[in-house]
């Protein structure tokens, strides 16, 4: 009877580390399936969201799929958007990092799901591209050990890039992978990883750019907290999507406006116009402003002034601004808002 091939699941973000880890394990004769978790908070998704509208010649890509194609490793996208917000972001057992990033709970959630897939589909172990000491919250020795324990993956979770500085795992002890071929990378530097990439012939990988998740971002976290405070935890997916673009201002408990910052954001906001009020300037290059919630006449005038402020007519003494609210439309002549501390007070 032929010997059963060892099979492993790899968590693949599409970044260099997880790509290298997959390449290493694949080179050791293990059959690899990459799992890419779609949380709804991916920064690259936002770039693609905005960039792809007017950029058909050079669309942004999903780096995990691209890495899978380079390595010829199958990558499956695991959609966890629906569960991620209520189960991970809103109630993290292990707390937040610098923003609303529950990195440890996030890791645990993804590994739990990977463990289920391992059992369902008869895989032998799980690996990640984690590097000891690379990230302050989740990639230190104590949390890495605790994550293994809490997911019930003790001994079955291999970190090939840092394996030499971690206790041997079952795949190493049983000889499923050759521990000598693994690495002992520690810390935040990328030099060794880039060397490995060259050795493996990987030439096209994303540059590290401050992480791939919105949640550590202070500005994004503030908008998310505001949304949860005023809309409650049952958040509409469109409202979540809109957090990724524009300047946000809160005019009242149930009124918020979103002002596009450039053409791509205007194009993006355009898709969400149905069911929302909108304000724009026709005679000058202008943001599209979306209105969420019921607006008083004073709020509408103020919204028109804000929109005018960010238009190319900002230095005029008065300009016409168009509005459309609840099926009605009209025009107001307003003075574009100048330096006004009210803006800072209402900026989310």
């Amino acid at each position: 009877m032929p010997e059963k091939k060892i099979r492993a699941l790899g968590l693949m973000s599409g970044g260099l580390d997880s790509t290298l880890a997959a390449n290493l394990i694949q080179n050791l004769g293990v059959e690899v399936l990459g799992l890419h978790f779609s949380t709804g908070f991916c920064v690259a998704d936002r770039h693609r969201l905005l960039g792809n509208f007017n950029n058909r010649d050079k669309p942004y890509r999903n780096d995990a799929l691209h890495a899978g194609a380079q390595l010829e490793v199958p990558v499956e996208i695991i959609d966890i958007k629906d569960r991620y917000l209520p189960e991970v972001v809103l109630n993290p057992k292990h707390g937040y990092g610098s923003g609303m990033n529950p990195c440890i709970d996030c890791r645990i959630f993804m590994l739990h799901r990977a463990k289920e897939i391992m059992a369902e589909r008869d895989y032998d172990f799980i690996f990640t591209g984690e590097v000891l000491g690379q990230r302050p919250m989740s990639q230190r020795r104590p949390p890495m050990h605790m994550i293994e324990k809490e997911t019930g993956l003790e001994g079955l979770l291999l970190r090939p890039l840092s394996a030499h500085v971690m206790p041997p795992t079952i795949p190493e002890e049983k000889g499923w992978v050759d521990r000598d071929k693994l690495h002992g990378i520690v810390g935040r530097g990328r030099h060794k990883q880039m060397q490995l990439a060259e050795e493996f012939g990987l030439v096209d990988y994303p540059q590290p750019a401050g992480g791939c998740c919105f949640l550590p971002d202070e500005n994004y976290s503030r908008k998310l907290r505001d949304l949860l405070t005023f809309n409650g935890p049952d958040v509409d997916p469109d409202d979540m999507m809109l957090l990724k673009v524009g300047r946000h201002f809160r005019l009242g408990d149930d009124v918020k406006i979103i002002v596009g910052r450039h053409e791509s954001e205007n194009d993006f906001l355009e898709r969400f116009r149905d069911g929302r009020g909108s304000v724009w300037v026709e005679d000058y290059s202008s943001p599209l402003t979306l209105i969420e919630g019921p607006l008083s006449a004073a709020d509408l005038e103020f919204t028109c002034q804000i929109t005018a402020r960010y238009s190319a007519g900002r230095n005029e003494s008065e300009i016409p601004v168009h509005w459309q609210v609840d099926g009605e439309q009209g025009q107001l002549r307003v003075q574009p808002l100048g330096e006004d501390r009210r803006l800072d007070e209402i900026r989310i």
Binding site: P59, R61, N62, L65, G68, A69, V73, P74, V75, E76
Partner: peptide
């Protein structure tokens, strides 16, 4: 209608060994 499919679906096909036949725009 998201142009990203023109790059993501071919990559997915290679990665999963499905056959990418092409795109009509």
């Amino acid at each position: 209608d998201d142009a990203g499919v023109e790059i993501d679906l071919p990559a997915w096909c290679i990665s999963t060994r499905n056959e990418y036949l092409g795109v009509l725009r």
